[in-house]
């Protein structure tokens, strides 16, 4: 790495950006090139001619359903994971818990938000699967959840599984946000006659809201792009858009690779929209909480 730096001229300031060449070269090769080639080939047929057939093909069943399922499951887990994560961060900030719990909570959250993929799927099979631990305990208590129609390999089951990494991620981001609220704001509100509830209603919560919504968008993207957990848990049983794309790549269905590119493009667009929203909200939050 030292060579990169030392080849950059010291005095000719117009050339100092050369120090960034390796980084941008990497970005072009392994981020930009793959994504633009997907983009371009979304508008081509198998012979390389321009076509909109792949884009219009996105409206054909089961593709819209797949997008819709992915969006729903991402939204549901982002909202509920967001609420649970925020409530946990808020409870932590309320200061009524034993002292040792404070650092432990954050380590827990860091571990859980990274504990996704195949292992997470296995853990939930062993917990809420047909012979899972919690299923058995509840059955012992007279509550047969499978008898009520619960199924781990369903929308609800996958949502519960995703929640396992969603709420800790929210917690992890909200803790510093809540700690970023200045003590003086609370005191000023109190001094002006506000109760604790009024402070949270009119000052604390509104100040956190952009950051809460931004983080929920992050959770949305987190679930929307997830493939490994869903694949390991349900195989192909839930038609998420990521599962569909995986099937296209494997050549399992349709065998129209260009349609697969268009599906991937659609995903990138949805992710981009949520990232733009995230950046916008984050900017408001930074302006307020600076």
């Amino acid at each position: 790495m030292a060579t990169t730096i030392s080849t950059a001229p010291r005095r000719h300031f117009s050339w100092v950006w050369l120090g960034l060449t390796p980084f941008f070269l990497f970005a072009i090769l392994f981020i930009l090139l793959p994504s633009t080639s997907l983009f371009i080939d979304s508008f081509r047929d198998g012979q390389g001619n321009f076509t909109l057939a792949n884009i219009t093909g996105l409206t054909q069943s089961p593709i819209p359903e797949s997008y819709w399922l992915s969006i729903r499951i991402s939204a549901v887990t982002a909202i509920f994971g967001g609420i649970l994560g925020f409530l946990l961060a808020y409870s932590r900030a309320s200061g009524n818990l034993p002292r040792w719990l404070y650092p432990v909570t954050l380590t827990f959250a860091a571990v859980a938000s990274n504990f996704a993929g195949v292992t997470l799927a296995f853990a939930f099979v062993n917990t809420l699967g047909r012979t899972g631990f919690v299923t058995a305990v509840l059955k012992g208590l007279g509550l047969d959840i499978y008898g009520f129609g619960f199924n781990l390999y369903s929308f609800l089951g996958l949502s519960l599984t995703y929640m396992y990494f969603q709420f800790p991620l929210m917690l992890l981001i909200m803790v510093p946000a809540i700690e970023g609220l200045k003590k003086e704001w609370r005191e000023a509100a109190e001094n002006l006659g506000a109760s604790t509830f009024q402070y949270w209603l009119r000052v604390g919560f509104p100040l956190l809201l952009p950051s809460i919504l931004a983080t929920m968008l992050l959770l949305f993207g987190n679930a929307f792009g997830a493939y490994a957990t869903a694949f390991a848990l349900t195989g192909g049983r839930l038609n998420l858009i990521t599962i569909q794309i995986g099937a296209q790549m494997r050549g399992d269905v349709l065998h129209n690779v260009n349609l697969g590119y268009a599906m991937a493009l659609g995903m990138v667009l949805i992710m981009a929209v949520s990232l733009v929203g995230y950046t916008y909200l984050q900017r408001i939050s930074e302006r307020w909480l600076r």
Partner: peptide, 24 residues
């Protein structure tokens, strides 16, 4: 510009990335 590039992987899910890499 650099921060924008470091955020791109958030927009491109792993499954899309690998699809594009194989294609390219």
């Amino acid at each position: 510009a650099v921060e924008f590039v470091t955020l791109l992987p958030f927009v491109i899910p792993a499954i899309v990335l690998v699809f594009g890499l194989i294609k390219t």
